[in-house]
Simulated scan of single mutants.
Amino acid sequence: MALENAVVTADAAHTQHANGLWLREQGAHYIAVVKGNHPGLLKRLRKLPWADIALDHKDRTRGRGRLEVRHLKTAAFRHLDYPGARQALRVMRWRKDLTSNKITIERLYFVTSLPPGAASGARIAAWIRGHWKIENQLHHVRDTTFAEDASTIRAGRLPRVMATLRNLAISVCRQDDRTNIAAATRHHTRHPGRPMATLRWT
């Protein structure tokens, strides 16, 4: 896959120095989330004077019984202890459950190799939301519906093979206009002909 000038988003498990260095060597940029598995970097990002930094982007969405407001701020760096990092990002998310009126606030921190001015705040926010969408629609479903994290398959290439099969099952259900993957899975297990019909093999 050609990666030159691509922007790759990564969750905390993939926020590794070797990965950042490899992407930059391929001519790609990254937006990588920083969480507790990188305590030193996370501590440094948290200590930035975010209150004094101007807001780059704000958006507001409503759906699935909740209201969500997101603020994005960016801070440029001369040097950050991550390969090719040029900016730090902070996303604040306010979520209000419209049934219970409960409000939750979350702060997320990122590093990116994108230099200041290379992309608008709106564009960066869209890339981050796109990553969360993949997390919610794929990885979360693999864990909750297919119990991937509880799998005892650990050896060799088998975990990758099983992940690919789970991705295939989820993708087939979504192409069949199924939004509830758990319900779609139950539907298909009740009769051996249903998966064949969905795959149009009959």
Rank of each mutant, 00 (worst) to 15 (best):
residue 162 M to W: 15
residue 82 Y to E: 15
residue 131 H to G: 04
residue 93 R to G: 06
residue 145 T to K: 01
residue 97 D to E: 13
residue 182 A to G: 09
residue 138 L to W: 15
residue 103 I to G: 09
residue 104 T to K: 14
residue 185 T to Y: 12
residue 167 N to G: 05
residue 83 P to R: 15
residue 114 L to H: 08
residue 178 R to N: 10
residue 162 M to Q: 14
residue 147 A to I: 14
residue 115 P to Q: 08
residue 111 V to T: 00
residue 136 N to D: 05
residue 93 R to F: 05
residue 84 G to P: 09
residue 146 F to T: 07
residue 86 R to M: 10
residue 120 S to P: 05
residue 161 V to I: 10
residue 163 A to H: 10
residue 112 T to R: 02
residue 101 N to S: 07
residue 135 E to C: 00
residue 124 I to F: 09
residue 87 Q to P: 03
residue 92 M to Q: 12
residue 108 L to C: 14
residue 140 H to P: 11
residue 96 K to R: 09
residue 127 W to F: 10
residue 157 R to L: 10
residue 160 R to S: 05
residue 115 P to Y: 15
residue 163 A to E: 07
residue 133 K to G: 03
residue 174 R to L: 12
residue 141 V to N: 15
residue 95 R to V: 10
residue 180 N to L: 01
residue 174 R to Y: 11
residue 125 A to L: 11
residue 93 R to M: 05
residue 145 T to D: 13
residue 125 A to K: 01
residue 169 A to P: 00
residue 102 K to H: 10
residue 167 N to V: 00
residue 131 H to I: 11
residue 98 L to F: 03
residue 115 P to W: 08
residue 90 R to A: 04
residue 126 A to K: 13
residue 124 I to M: 02
residue 113 S to W: 00
residue 125 A to F: 10
residue 171 S to A: 02
residue 131 H to L: 04
residue 84 G to N: 08
residue 154 R to D: 14
residue 123 R to H: 10
residue 145 T to N: 12
residue 119 A to I: 02
residue 177 D to T: 02
residue 105 I to Y: 06
residue 157 R to H: 05
residue 149 D to A: 00
residue 135 E to N: 08
residue 178 R to C: 12
residue 100 S to D: 10
residue 170 I to S: 06
residue 145 T to M: 04
residue 83 P to V: 02
residue 134 I to N: 15
residue 128 I to C: 03
residue 184 A to T: 02
residue 111 V to N: 02
residue 104 T to F: 03
residue 105 I to M: 15
residue 151 S to L: 03
residue 91 V to H: 02
residue 151 S to A: 15
residue 179 T to C: 12
residue 123 R to E: 14
residue 95 R to D: 07
residue 140 H to G: 15
residue 155 A to V: 06
residue 171 S to L: 14
residue 139 H to M: 01
residue 106 E to N: 04
residue 109 Y to D: 07
residue 107 R to W: 03
residue 126 A to G: 08
residue 142 R to V: 04
residue 101 N to A: 06
residue 164 T to C: 11
residue 114 L to R: 08
residue 82 Y to V: 01
residue 94 W to M: 03
residue 83 P to Q: 10
residue 155 A to I: 04
residue 163 A to Y: 04
residue 173 C to I: 05
residue 110 F to P: 00
residue 172 V to P: 06
residue 114 L to K: 15
residue 122 A to V: 03
residue 158 L to A: 12
residue 157 R to Y: 12
residue 177 D to C: 01
residue 164 T to G: 09
residue 156 G to R: 15
residue 100 S to K: 05
